[in-house]
Design a protein around this nucleic acid. Structure first.
Lengths: 214, 214
DNA sequence: CGTTAATAGATATTTTAATATCAATATAAA
DNA sequence: TTTATATTGATATTAAAATATCTATTAACG
């Protein structure tokens, strides 16, 4: 295939958790933090945290730790979350509405500027402050506002068609919450969230706790 | 720490996607499948699929492939999804409601039998067919029905307290959708879903597509 | 029947991630 | 000041995951 290989993906996946904790710490008035502290909070080893932070290019002070502010800035910059990016959301069903109501995205520099659906009773309304437009207008509005991220929460049957609309609208990255494996042209990023993956891991861990390793 | 080390976690995380596709294939009337076919659908390499399936203990036939039925059964058994397990859900807000409405859980042998909340206007109602009870009754009902999984979707401020209620009710595994890093006794499994992890990965991939590697 | 292509399974290899070790630095306590 | 402790950063090591290679098996086709 295929997508140039992205390295240190496990580290990248942990960065948002560090970022969240660091924001809390800043709010609490801490200005310094050690990897031991961050690790304890996440139940992982300090060495893992240190290696993870390394990829952002931030440096700490031996014997002391890192400046909370610097660390937050470094993580945000590395992830491209230092400037807000705008996103569209397609499918204002229960999951879509939940995502529209999710406050945390602001911390991640993501702003959902419009939602799209086909249900006549939703079009023209606002969900958690976000206006719902007719799905067919997605490409037009996407182009108009130069949106490059799309959040896909439609039923499986229309997932591919709506993804195509997003691509038509110039969207470069699709956050795919459907169960469909999308086919997209070269250069379009798809990030699929499979909620059952977490359940699978939990199921295995639980079996271990209940029965030990078979 | 610290959780005995669980191996092949990446493989475990991919199993639900295979399972989903296999169920579709069975519905379409296919009885055989090759790793090439499954891999193509998920945009990964066939060798990865073969190694993943290996952990379930299933065997295929050289030159032919696997029996779809056998494969489904093997994956379900490995994940403990061959018998339905019952779960409770705490926090019937927008995310909790979305999860209550999620159909896919049936495929994964998960049944949410009750929801809990503190909001007086929700208690006694049904959300997607699931009755909402007063949060304080969680331990009592959990014990009564011998539930061992809890789904946590409450606001951060009450997350630890509600997790404690779950543990009091005999729950052994908590699927944690909050931003809080829970503290739990030995033997309790916590699976935390950090939605921003996927966004972080997507952000890095997008940077690569837009700018190339820095 | 013989040939070709596709496949699983076994094993080996490579790549990547996690972890350990150690030196240098800073802080706090004695 | 001295000592003990905690820290980062660099390097080395180990463990795990991904990938390659090869063999035996099967089906399809001429």
């Amino acid at each position: 295939m295929n997508n140039a290989r992205i390295q240190k993906l496990p580290s990248i996946r942990r960065l948002p958790s560090y970022l969240h904790r660091l924001n809390e710490m800043r709010f609490e008035g801490c200005d310094k933090v050690s990897t031991t502290l961050l690790a304890g909070h996440m139940n992982i080893e300090p060495i893992v945290v240190r290696k993870d932070l390394e990829i952002t290019g931030v440096t700490g002070q031996p014997g002391v730790g890192y400046q909370v502010d610097e660390l937050i800035a470094a993580i945000k910059k590395f992830l491209g979350w230092d400037n807000t990016s705008e996103a569209l959301l397609a499918g204002a069903g229960s999951l879509g509405s939940a995502l529209l109501g999710y406050q945390g995205f602001e911390d991640y520099g993501l702003k959902i500027i419009a939602a799209f659906d086909t249900a006549a009773d939703k079009i023209g309304t606002r969900i958690h402050g976000c206006e719902v437009f007719e799905l067919a207008r997605l490409p037009e509005l996407s182009r108009k506002f130069h949106v490059c991220m799309g959040i896909l929460c439609v039923p499986p049957a229309s997932a591919q068609a709506v993804a195509d609309l997003m691509i038509e609208g110039g969207i470069r990255a699709i956050w795919n919450f459907t169960s469909v494996s999308l086919q997209v042209p070269e250069g379009i990023v798809v990030q699929r969230e499979v909620i059952a993956s977490g359940l699978a891991v939990m199921s295995i861990k639980l079996q271990y706790e209940l029965n030990g390793w078979k």
